[in-house]
Design a protein around this nucleic acid. Structure first.
Ligand SMILES: [Mn+2]
Ligand SMILES: [Mn+2]
Ligand SMILES: [Zn+2]
Ligand SMILES: [Zn+2]
Lengths: 143, 143
DNA sequence: TGCATGTTTGGAATGATTACAAACAACAGC
DNA sequence: GCTGTTGTTTGTAATCATTCCAAACATGCA
């Protein structure tokens, strides 16, 4: 498990944000969990061990800054809380109605790269499915 | 403007729900606004004129029942509140970041009808874009 | 050293939604 | 017509994610 913090500071600065200690550790945590889709609360909770003084408000501030700067994507799939991930490459997701996880879906989509539709300007493309993941289907089956 | 309430009572009953007065007027309102995507608050506000005693809680209860019964679709696009529409035919949307409207997008999508993906069971397909609608682009242009 | 600017912090406020318990309505059996 | 049962409606209180706010901090620069 190699700590690859190098570059995070530069990544943050490159978007015109000050690379503060808080922003670095939050982006580091997101970078170490690239395939997960974390809530602000989860990020704050994971941080409490190493940095107990980090406030939840700062986590929210930081995530909002990252999203505005185009570093992080915010997903509003569940309707109850925002999930964040360290990428801005558009891709699809599946929300499992059993375990609540959000899972990346590798799928071709002819609309994923569109910049306009019917004369509307398109800035973001979001595609997701709601259903049941494989793990949960197996659990159901074996019970 | 013809009042076409006929059938709503039957539609509600056909899903195993009692066709109460409240449920009928709420579904009627949704049916009259087929292309809009309303919040519970908007529905409640529109109702206040004719039915001032209808409670916001009942609007929520009713909408949740309709969604569970497969009569109504809930959209969690903005992240701040749920939008409801009287259809369950899967289609795409555009959220205008200027005026906040959600607009139906007629577009072909090869994934819109999928029932499974990578071994996952798929129950719902959601696709939407964030951008700027034509009205708002014109306003920007003319200012 | 002192100032200006941007960031962090905790606590209070906000706002959408749900929980809850009491009042109601519809209906079947007596 | 009463009575019990069941599901619905209602108002109020509670919940929970997120934002607001003002004070404390940090950083870099005159
Ligand atoms: Mn993802
Ligand atoms: Mn629609
Ligand atoms: Zn699952
Ligand atoms: Zn618009």
């Amino acid at each position: 498990m190699i700590t690859n913090n190098s570059g995070l500071k530069e990544v943050i600065a490159s978007r015109g944000l000050k690379p503060t200690a808080q922003r670095i550790i939050i982006l580091d945590h997101l970078a170490r969990n690239m395939k997960k889709h974390l809530t602000a609360e989860q990020i704050h909770g994971a941080m409490r061990k190493k940095t107990p003084m980090l406030s939840l408000t700062t986590v929210y501030n930081t995530l909002n800054s990252f999203v505005d700067a185009g570093l992080v994507t915010a997903l509003t799939i569940t309707g109850t809380e925002v999930r964040y991930e360290y990428t801005t490459v558009s891709h699809h997701h599946l929300l499992c109605k059993h375990c609540g996880r959000i899972i990346d879906i590798e799928i071709q989509c002819p609309n994923a790269e569109r910049k306009s539709i019917n004369g509307y300007r398109v800035d973001e493309v979001h595609g997701y499915f709601k259903g049941v993941c494989r793990d949960c289907m197996n659990k159901e089956h074996n019970q």
